[in-house]
Design a protein around this nucleic acid. Structure first.
Lengths: 278, 278
DNA sequence: ACCATATAGTAAACCGCTTAACTATACTGA
DNA sequence: TCAGTATAGTTAAGCGGTTTACTATATGGT
């Protein structure tokens, strides 16, 4: 593969000039520029990104760190969409994505290593679930970083270091959903939540739910909260227990679609209509 | 960040020795080795992968190229599993994965560019669907490459260049599935296929189906082949048309699970039992 | 006693690019 | 006319490693 010296020789200029032409640095005559570009074309030259990275001290590579949760990761279509979105923008900006998953079995793996070796200019970490150990190491490394999800709180009280993060507004979403039901006149609202203490998003939604009730001077009845695990089956089961309460709730707020499907199946089996009866 | 010179100075050796220690090259005394490692530890030194790549002419990065098909890509859980699998092995071998999707709108994008610039040691291309233009360019570049899926035929007749590929044995799978039904005594077997001329896998399965019939001296009745698009709805519809035939098929071979689910739903609605009646 | 060989370490070139510093013209305006 | 500046291009020093020679001991066999 041709390098910058080959091009320089062919165009009868110095490598500095070739570099200038390729980076559009001013003060190169049009004729020289044309000669260089001609040589580039003839040789099919394409500068080595590796060499460039070495001098520029930037790789134009962003690490995309994904927590490894086989059961979860394999089945989350949302995740793939996130990856696609990230890739789309990175691509637009001429950045590349280094895909990396943190393995709990080996936190000192490629994932962590990469950060130190200067192969990435920054990282995006997915922390839909709880933040793991690798994430903490990252924190210390001081590398540029954005979290997708709720960042782990940086511990020590009044720390000035606030992690950059982007996530759904779970709190307000839950607040609005609940308020809607309340405005419809519902006063006993059941919740089919995700696992307790599993992820921040769940806590936030519960908080939103609770605050909405408070606005209507209602207090939260713990009996109305059932815990599922985001699967259809768990939604089915949770709906069952909620509907056995008396008086039974007149509405149910499910924390994801699969559980809602399960709940609806159960509701139908009990000869109730949605949305007329529930 | 500390570099190899810092380490050399601290351990009072040359950089060559540091390099040797770190690559386990023989002929370094234990005491020297210990001194170097000590310095490495104290400085938190980690060699720059970029610099290493430049001299070794290898980046230890493998490109994972994925065809861009928004509708498809976003919804294929299988794809995510494949990615995970690739990542798992790459990780074991200390390779990193550069994630890249080919955009039809801009084939000359990061995807293609990377290949020329020497940022990747090789590529893995996913070609579950038909092979696109970027794939062809790759072919010409001569870069190490493995295809997941059926590789595009390299055109020009007796070419010696055969692409490396790994894919399901669609032909034998279909052959076996069909043979099983035939052994059970079924003689009129319906097929709910994927879109015609869409991907090689479908053609292969149809071929397997056909050959199985041939073994039993049966010929293929085109009326028994319905075409869906892998969705539940299309399976539902296809089953409907197949079951209207008279005599109706006694078995149906679906090309994916979603269509099978749709078909079963339809079958039940027609008051037929699976597997007793169909 | 001496040469061959194994062991331990070093100097410096090299990978391919960028860029600071420098030289050499040509063009200004006062 | 001449200093000052804009333009065009070059030289060479990095960036941070690896590796090929090469030197210098220590060891061993005859």
């Amino acid at each position: 593969m041709a390098n910058i010296y080959d091009v320089a020789r062919r165009a009868k200029v110095s490598t500095a000039t070739v570099s200038k032409v390729l980076s559009n640095t001013p003060y190169v005559s049009d004729t020289t520029k044309e000669r260089v570009l001609e040589a580039v074309r003839e040789l099919g030259y394409s500068p080595s990104l590796v060499a460039r990275s070495l001098t520029k001290n930037r790789t134009y590579v962003i690490g995309l760190a994904i927590p490894y949760r086989p059961d979860y990761l394999f089945n989350d279509p949302f995740l793939l969409q996130v990856i696609q979105g990230v890739e789309e923008i990175a691509n637009e900006r001429d950045y590349n994505l280094l895909f990396s998953t943190a393995r709990p079995s080996n936190p000192e793996s490629a994932y962590t290593r990469l950060l130190r070796t200067g192969y990435v200019d920054g990282v995006i970490t997915l922390e839909t679930l709880e933040a793991g150990e690798p994430s903490r190491k990252l924190e210390e490394s001081g590398l540029a970083r954005v979290t997708i999800g709720y960042p782990l709180s940086t511990g020590s009280g009044t720390t000035d270091k606030v992690a950059n993060a982007v996530h759904c507004d779970d709190y307000n979403g839950a607040l609005e959903a609940t308020s809607y039901l309340l405005r419809q006149g519902h006063r006993r609202i059941g919740v089919i939540s995700g696992p307790a203490n599993f992820m921040v998003a769940i806590d936030e939604r519960l908080r939103g739910f609770k605050d909405a009730l408070t606005c209507y001077a209602l207090s939260l009845d713990p009996a109305l909260i059932a815990y599922g695990d985001f699967t259809l089956e768990s939604g089915y089961a949770a709906a069952g227990s909620l509907l056995e309460l008396s008086p039974r709730p007149s509405a149910i707020f499910c924390f994801n679609d699969m559980m809602a499907l399960g709940a609806m199946r159960r509701v139908r089996e009990m000869k109730l209509r949605v949305p007329e009866d529930l």
